[in-house]
Design a binder for these strands. Sequence first.
DNA 1: TGTATCATGTGAAAAAAATCACAACAGAGA
DNA 2: TCTCTGTTGTGATTTTTTTCACATGATACA
Lengths: 204, 204
Amino acid sequence: MTAISNKVINRLTLYHCLLKYTCKGKPFIASSEIADLLDLDDSLVRKDIALCGVLGHKKQGYVVDELKKSIEQKLGFSERKEVFIIGAGSLGTALVNYADFKDYGIDILALFDNDPNKIGKEIGGKRVVSLEKLSNLISRINIKNIILTVPPQAAQEVTDYAVQCGVRFIWNFTPTVLRVPKTVTVYYENIVSSFMQMQNASIA
Amino acid sequence: MTAISNKVINRLTLYHCLLKYTCKGKPFIASSEIADLLDLDDSLVRKDIALCGVLGHKKQGYVVDELKKSIEQKLGFSERKEVFIIGAGSLGTALVNYADFKDYGIDILALFDNDPNKIGKEIGGKRVVSLEKLSNLISRINIKNIILTVPPQAAQEVTDYAVQCGVRFIWNFTPTVLRVPKTVTVYYENIVSSFMQMQNASIA
DNA sequence: TGTATCATGTGAAAAAAATCACAACAGAGA
DNA sequence: TCTCTGTTGTGATTTTTTTCACATGATACA
């Protein structure tokens, strides 16, 4: 089981979306179809698929259902991943409501916030809890992942606290760079950068 | 003016966040500081910075203010980019409220939706407009960019319509792959993939 | 049954990205 | 003033990623 690069993860996830929504009902799909839709080289698609251990069929392509399941397995979609959201603002709310998360095993347990008007209420069926309780809850149910959707000014402070509480992975939706110990992984969901990359595509 | 790769754009944007929030007040910053915070090689940081045409100072590093401005210029943060959001659900709402967009020149003009309960209302200070009016508005004010935040089931249909209306760039927040003509660019904001990449970091 | 076709699977080559290594030299401090 | 240090800037190397090219062989169809 070789490690697989982020680029491959990204593409496999897109193939999976494609199989899930675009190819509904089709029994087979060719690498060239996937490649055309995503503007990739077809041999690259085949190599990605090979990493999932799926074999295609000459003159037919890949079995959609099998390929979809193999991607799910390879990327661990069916393993349950419990997550807390810190910051019950509109982005936190949007993520709680992101319906597809459950198909990927991403299970949001609760939201945390400091705002007394929000604490105790429910958003998207999940309870909003006082940030003070984070420490307690993390140790009790051993949560490793948090989604950070607080205002940028508060990001580092909240991060320090979360790290102290034992968090291991921080999915950072704030436009800030976080100072964390080496044992903690920050993944930057750099929304603005995405936009710039999109615009760049016009030149490239 | 050489074209610059998406990876570089991504990193430069992060450097910019860092300069904006983390380094407030400091006059200088060394490539090694940036590298440490972002877990990169310092020579890579220097090469990225060189692409912006900024020169550093021996034994001191880069002038924070100058570097920040140069990144803004290189990535075109100050050029105004007008955008429509299609889909006034919770994700659309979150993006309208994303305060930092304006610092990057991203200007959301309006939201579009089919829901009669939403049409005519305001979200985050922007008007929600009937999707039917998209064609008209696009041709009148020549909008090129849309943010797509509709439910995945509706994504392709709305995309077809938007393309027909003359849209050039689609920032796709839905977990779907879109069929578009070669003249249209889709940028996939593959939220789930980000999470998987984050988890992957534990192994890598 | 035979043949032509078309999609796979994969080595080899090319391109892109990152790392290494170090000369240069400005600045700090004795 | 002199020396030492720390940081830049960059050429060379390595690693990673992508593309190219094509042999293989299953399938459709006559």
